[in-house]
């Protein structure tokens, strides 16, 4: 009896510790860093919504143009019109947040449909799905976005839509791999034998019970890319339009003064982009190693 209890504790101890034991300490550090960045983003969003900004983002101080960080009253310096950088950095999150979520929704929905069709139903749809994803993969994203911008109008929602569609092949490929692996498992076969409808097997037993961490990882990895591409488009002048600040157009405005030696007003937003994107990348990768156990080194 005692022996039995002892085994119980060891097993439960093991299962409690295992996820931390199995993963590298570095992966845990990545995840922690990524979560900190994620929390900062959420905080910035709330601050921007409720207007709890440390300074008025529109107020211009012409005697304090292009100041570096630590200028009196301006923690991160000012831009070329003497506007404080910090509240503008925070305001950007509001412009990014909803389009970013839409992008993730489009990518996962479309990629999910493709992945389910080719992974679960196999041969019947595989050719069609491969054909469509190959077509999408043929376009350089930025060029496709420029085409859409030229045909319609420069709008962040259009851009995020294109980004979502172009990211769908990747998501579809991953989901397909996962589903066709799970399809062989006994629990799916027994579910089919029990006469459970396909939709319930796919959504509940495969996607929800076995793929949700995977989808979250994909979403975080995609988020970093979305920020980079959006800022690149803002730099080119087609992303978030003036006077709404975006990290891309803040860097671009600062860069006009860069050759005169005024480094700070473009460096600060560029650093914001870098740390955030790095946060999303590391979070995605760390979670991947932690939950999926990709690396057994």
């Amino acid at each position: 009896m005692t022996q039995y209890a002892q085994t119980q504790t060891t097993v439960s101890e093991y299962s409690e510790l295992s996820i931390l034991q199995r993963t590298d300490k570095r992966d845990i550090a990545y995840v922690v860093y990524g979560i900190v960045i994620l929390l900062m983003v959420v905080c910035a969003y709330l601050m921007a919504i409720f207007g709890w900004l440390p300074h008025d983002p529109e107020e211009m101080q012409l005697e304090l143009m292009l100041a570096g960080p630590g200028a009196p009253g301006h923690l991160l310096g000012t831009d070329f019109m003497g506007r404080d950088t910090l509240p503008r950095l925070i305001l950007v999150i509001k412009a990014y947040f909803v389009p970013g979520l839409m992008y993730i929704a489009v990518a996962i929905l479309l990629g999910g449909i493709f992945g389910i069709l080719s992974g679960y139903y196999g041969n019947k749809y595989e050719t069609v799905v491969t054909y469509i994803t190959n077509i999408i993969d043929s376009f350089p994203r930025l060029i496709l976005m420029l085409l859409v911008v030229a045909a319609f109008k420069p709008d962040i929602y259009y851009i995020m839509m294109v980004l979502g569609v172009t990211n769908a092949p990747l998501v579809s490929q991953l989901i397909k791999g996962k589903i066709s692996m799970l399809r062989q498992k006994n629990f799916v076969e027994s579910a089919i034998a029990l006469g459970i409808p396909d939709a319930r097997i796919i959504f509940k037993h495969i996607l929800w019970f076995n793929c949700r961490s995977y989808l979250i990882i994909q979403a975080t990895l995609g988020m970093g890319e979305a920020i980079l591409l959006e800022s690149a488009l803002s730099y080119l002048g087609f992303g978030v339009q003036e006077p709404t600040p975006s990290w891309g157009n803040m860097v671009q405005q600062g860069a006009n003064y860069l050759l005169q030696g005024q480094l700070w007003s473009s460096t600060i937003p560029a650093m914001a982009i870098m740390f955030t994107v790095l946060g999303f990348y590391l979070l995605g990768d760390g979670l991947n190693n932690m939950l999926e156990g990709k690396r057994q080194s």
Binding site: A232, L259, S266, A270, I273, Y281
Partner: peptide
């Protein structure tokens, strides 16, 4: 680890900013 972080960082830095910095240093 240092090499890996370097690879990550190159992917996270916005290209248009780093290109400007390189032009600045070059000039």
């Amino acid at each position: 680890w240092v090499l890996m972080m370097f690879a990550y960082t190159t992917s996270a830095v916005p290209l248009f900013w780093s290109a400007y910095i390189v032009i600045y240093i070059y000039t």
